[in-house]
Amino acid sequence: MYKQQHPIVLASKSPRRQELMKALGLDFTIELKEVDESFPDGLQPSAVAVYISEKKAKAFGSSTNQITITADTIVALDGEILGKPDDRVHAQEMLRKLSGRKHEVYTGVTLIKDNELISFYDLSEVFCREVSEEEIEYYIDNFKPFDKAGSYGVQDWWGLVVVERIKGSYTNVMGLPTEKLYQALSNL
């Protein structure tokens, strides 16, 4: 059982990550820094998720007796990374691609404490039913998924109506694999 002995900083503005941290019973503060989320060409999606989470952690540096947690979530379809949409048309394109298909969600997580980086990722497979253009328009109009990788949130209408099943961690698809995070904290 994890017993919190150090202050925890969550370096994320994601309301979903904050909600999951609270659900874990962790006491934490939120600190944000702007980080360039570019990555080298040729990395696999899992490596991209870890690379960006480590980049975010390194922006914070390390302070003694504090744990900083960063994360990055990647949606991939046939090896193509579907990031956050640039605009409505881009969101429509992504949701059409996901319709009736299986895709992968990778979340890279990095913990930094006393200048030591501990990084890992989790993988979940998400299976979506086919959706109509009308459903895509409804979703974008009502849920405005412009801040979400792959243009959808598993915790909202898309997850309730379109996602048929998930192989792997549900919280990973939300943006923070809580099972693996809890184990990593327990092992510090």
Rank of each mutant, 00 (worst) to 15 (best):
138 Y>G: 08
165 R>Y: 05
94 M>S: 09
156 D>K: 13
17 R>H: 02
89 V>Q: 12
179 E>W: 01
111 L>F: 04
26 L>V: 03
164 E>N: 02
117 L>M: 04
35 V>L: 03
172 N>I: 05
145 P>T: 00
75 V>C: 06
73 T>F: 02
48 V>N: 01
55 K>E: 08
138 Y>C: 04
35 V>M: 07
71 A>Y: 04
25 G>D: 14
91 A>W: 00
97 K>F: 01
126 V>E: 03
146 F>S: 09
69 I>E: 07
21 M>K: 10
114 D>Y: 14
170 Y>R: 13
167 K>M: 11
166 I>H: 00
92 Q>K: 03
99 S>K: 02
129 R>E: 06
91 A>V: 13
146 F>V: 00
140 I>R: 00
133 E>F: 09
141 D>K: 04
92 Q>H: 11
92 Q>G: 08
129 R>C: 02
149 A>K: 01
132 S>F: 09
148 K>F: 10
27 D>W: 09
110 T>E: 01
143 F>I: 01
1 M>K: 06
1 M>Q: 11
175 G>D: 01
109 V>Q: 01
95 L>Y: 00
171 T>P: 02
113 K>G: 06
24 L>E: 05
186 S>Q: 07
128 C>M: 02
81 I>R: 01
76 A>P: 00
69 I>R: 04
185 L>N: 13
70 T>C: 06
130 E>T: 15
68 T>W: 13
128 C>T: 12
121 Y>K: 00
130 E>C: 06
83 G>N: 15
153 G>L: 09
44 Q>I: 09
131 V>P: 03
73 T>G: 12
17 R>L: 12
3 K>H: 13
31 E>S: 03
116 E>S: 05
151 S>V: 00
21 M>H: 05
99 S>E: 06
50 V>G: 07
156 D>N: 11
108 G>W: 08
18 Q>L: 10
93 E>T: 14
53 S>T: 05
95 L>Q: 07
6 H>P: 10
161 V>E: 09
22 K>T: 09
25 G>K: 15
102 K>F: 02
184 A>E: 06
138 Y>V: 14
175 G>C: 13
129 R>S: 06
3 K>C: 08
184 A>S: 12
8 I>L: 15
14 S>A: 11
50 V>C: 09
76 A>Y: 00
147 D>F: 01
31 E>H: 06
10 L>Y: 03
64 T>I: 13
144 K>R: 04
154 V>F: 08
157 W>Q: 14
29 T>W: 10
73 T>K: 00
133 E>H: 11
101 R>A: 07
170 Y>S: 11
136 I>K: 10
142 N>Y: 10
132 S>E: 01
61 G>D: 10
155 Q>M: 14
96 R>Y: 10
39 F>V: 05
12 S>C: 04
11 A>M: 12
44 Q>E: 09
89 V>K: 14
33 K>D: 11
109 V>S: 05
116 E>M: 05
32 L>N: 15
12 S>L: 04
129 R>A: 14
104 E>K: 08
125 E>Y: 15
184 A>R: 11
52 I>F: 07
173 V>A: 00
151 S>C: 13
142 N>E: 03
155 Q>E: 01
36 D>N: 12
78 D>M: 12
